[in-house]
């Protein structure tokens, strides 16, 4: 029993251990890795993923998944790009992108909550449908954004770059909602056992619906932040970011089995870790074709650890009949 509990404790800390390991490895392998400038870059680069992964964390906490995140990112950003081209103001196009993301997320929620389609199938269909729509909408052409977009990305407020502010704002707010509102606490309950949660009087469907909608909104916001850094919408924009988001969340200690994980520090740490690995690969001049393989190995390991942890915990929870005898008996 003792050994098992120690294993659980270790597994709970696996993301921190990984983090230290990755930092040290790259620090030793590449001199320019541990410079202040590079660390700053990593933070800025992580912000888009961090925001998207925040939404993914909410979904994973309910034991669901959103595979359409990358496609929603693409559609939302394409819509705002089109608006900017047609001389709408920056504010309106940002708002429109968020609205589109939210709406597509709601559509996911509709399929999952109302029609009870398994989450991964519903969002897999959305992955294809939304990307098809986006490609049609952009005529498969890359759009270069006006300079004001990239300027926004490079702006500093109170000495902090705007992308980082956005990340801190969204992740902080979400974490506050998770920790300090009935919605958040009930979310954790329903992730463990939706039926028990329903019996306890929690409005499970409503919460699920908001979760998928917010995830869509976060995807859009993550897309906007990425756009403010790259300044262009290509037809592959956001492609496979859902995997990165799942990886960030799971690396940060969120369980695929629901009910366990945090946005801050968990997912944010996971996103930074993920970006650090990509950054390290760039600095080491690794073959860019290697990235997807490295990423999938990371996801695999993270999910494997999560699975092992889950089964160990389930074994610990097995009902015990024989109660430890204590001194007071007879």
């Amino acid at each position: 029993m003792e050994a098992r509990e120690t294993i659980v404790k270790l597994l709970n800390q696996s993301s921190l251990i990984l983090f230290a390991f990755v930092f040290l490895t790259f620090g030793i392998l590449a001199d320019s890795f541990l410079t202040l400038q590079n660390v700053r870059n990593i933070l800025i680069q992580s912000s888009s993923l961090g925001i998207a992964a925040t939404g993914m964390t909410l979904v994973l906490l309910t034991a669901g998944v959103d595979l359409s995140l990358g496609s929603i990112m693409f559609v939302a950003v394409a819509v705002s790009g089109k608006l900017l081209f047609n001389d709408y103001s920056l504010a309106i196009s940002i708002f429109a992108a968020l609205a589109v993301g939210f709406l597509l997320g709601m559509l996911n929620g509709l399929m999952i909550v109302r029609f009870r389609i398994v989450a991964f199938i519903a969002t897999l269909a959305m992955l294809f449908a939304a990307r098809g729509f986006g490609l049609w909408f952009t005529n498969t052409r890359a759009m270069n954004m006006p300079d004001e977009v990239t300027q926004l990305g490079a702006t500093h407020l109170l000495g902090v770059p705007v992308p980082i502010l956005a990340l801190v704002g969204i992740a902080g707010l979400t974490q506050a909602f998770l920790a300090f509102t009935p919605w958040g606490r009930q979310l954790y309950a329903l992730g463990v056992d939706p039926n028990a949660a329903r019996k306890a009087g929690i409005r499970v469907d409503l919460i699920l619906w908001t979760v998928y909608s917010v995830c869509g909104g976060c995807a859009a916001m993550g897309g906007l932040v990425a756009l403010s850094q790259t300044g262009a919408v290509s037809p592959s924009f956001g492609s496979q970011r859902e995997f990165a988001a799942i990886a960030a969340a799971v690396l940060g200690g969120t369980s695929l089995f629901g009910g366990r994980g945090t946005v801050f520090p968990g997912t944010i740490l996971g996103a930074i870790l993920f970006q650090t690995i990509e950054n390290g690969l760039v600095i080491m001049n690794a073959d860019p074709y290697l990235y997807p393989m490295v990423v999938s190995i990371i996801i695999f390991l993270a999910v494997l650890l999560d699975t092992v942890r889950n089964s160990v915990v389930n074994q610990l929870r097995r009902r015990h009949i024989r109660v430890q005898l204590d001194a007071s008996q007879d």
């Binding site: 074709y289 997807p292 996801i299």
Partner: peptide, 23 residues
């Protein structure tokens, strides 16, 4: 054997194998 959820296990192998093929 490892009892990973089927969709995520095969999703990661999809990513890995397609990355491998391209690389």
């Amino acid at each position: 054997v490892l009892k990973m959820p089927a969709f995520i296990a095969t999703l990661t192998s999809m990513m890995f194998l397609s990355g491998l093929a391209i690389w």
